[in-house]
Design a binder for these strands. Structure first.
Lengths: 209, 209
DNA sequence: TAGATTGTTAATCGATTAACAATC
DNA sequence: TAGATTGTTAATCGATTAACAATC
């Protein structure tokens, strides 16, 4: 197998490499050395080479890396070379914002449903998807073999719904609720805790004063 | 001074401690030991004690930590024991979602303005604040001595506006645009790159398959 | 070929964990 | 006082950086 247990720090950086490679392609740049890329990204050339070599030797001595090729390889590593169906649970402002965000579709994340219990929002359109009642969630998740769910609901609701979603087949949660979800080992949670991010900003801006 | 250069990893964890302490207070728990907290948070007691001791000895041998007191101390460390004025640049779905998010106000982040150039949204209400044209930004930032700005605009617009905002007095950016902002040393950027987070989820869910 | 740059091993640095004396 | 638990030093672990032989 290609993996020998990749560290969290490396995975954290991969999407950023991917973004820089995209920018390079937009600029029509066809090849890049680890040294050149390191200067643009403000990290060391060593780190870039170490990171990439976790997955294979994508470069060539004396030449560097082919931008298009490396971009494609990272897409494969991140499994975004394939389409993933997902649902959004909660059609509040944040859920609707995610649903309307076209970039996700561009990256191969196909939103198959947005769910809410509030009659006021059910039937409303959000980025090409109609908001459905929660009662239809099981059916849609199972019929479409959906593995990813974004949770844009309050923390109590999130904790309550997780086990159901897992039993329907969900294997990864994109969690925007302010709570740490307890899930079995084969299920993954990626947290986006916005208030915590804002607190870190506060610390960093005001710590010296 | 109280600081001896705190590591990023520690700052990353502080808001999470804060959240757990809040939950403990809600549950009416008055004291907690590092061991007990470590089991709840799935980390080691050593790490908790090391982290907290960067800022002072908040505990007591044989007793543990007073929940209310520690909660208050962390608020002070994070500088969220005071009110911070901020603005939101961009009144798209995401900007409006942030503006409507009442938790930020609860934490002492006071949204003084939401700005956009789109005539369709100007004048619209978002979480108690009216959307204003960008032309009014300078005035509002300077009059209110605003130091924090959330950037919910496309990457090109974000890159363009940063220097202006710094010249008005902004010292911290909460950046939702898919770009790394180049800022002087006295200015801080906290990134929330949602697509990158979603890619990491994709990797972690599908890597083995 | 000579120059450039990778892939990879070794050295360094920093963060986490363990251990325990201090002390409430 | 005895038991519990901190604060803090030392040991371990892991991640980053440096160095350089391999090679395009």
């Amino acid at each position: 197998m290609e993996h020998k247990e990749i560290s969290k720090a490396v995975i954290q950086r991969l999407p950023r490499y991917y973004r820089y490679l995209e920018d390079l392609m937009d600029q029509g740049i066809e090849r890049i050395s680890s040294g050149d890329l390191s200067r643009r990204m403000h990290l060391t050339a060593s780190q870039i080479r170490q990171d990439l070599n976790n997955f294979g030797g994508f470069g060539q001595q004396g030449y560097g890396y082919n931008v298009f090729n490396l971009h494609e390889e990272i897409a494969k590593i991140l499994k975004i070379d394939q389409v993933h169906s997902m649902i959004i649970v909660g059609a509040g402002h944040l859920g609707l914002a995610l649903s309307n965000y076209t970039n996700f579709r561009k990256r191969g994340f196909d939103i198959k449903g947005v769910f809410d219990n509030n009659p006021k929002v059910i039937g409303q359109e959000a980025g090409g998807v109609k908001v459905s009642p929660m009662s239809e969630m099981k059916d849609i998740v199972e019929k479409n073999h959906i593995r990813l769910a974004a949770l844009c609901i309050p923390k109590d609701a999130a904790v309550k719904i997780v086990d159901d979603l897992i039993s329907y087949g969900v294997r990864g949660f994109w969690n925007f609720a302010h709570v740490d979800l307890e899930v079995p080992e084969h299920v993954v949670v990626e947290n986006v805790h916005l208030s915590e991010s804002l607190m870190r900003l506060s610390y960093r801006v005001f710590e010296e004063q």
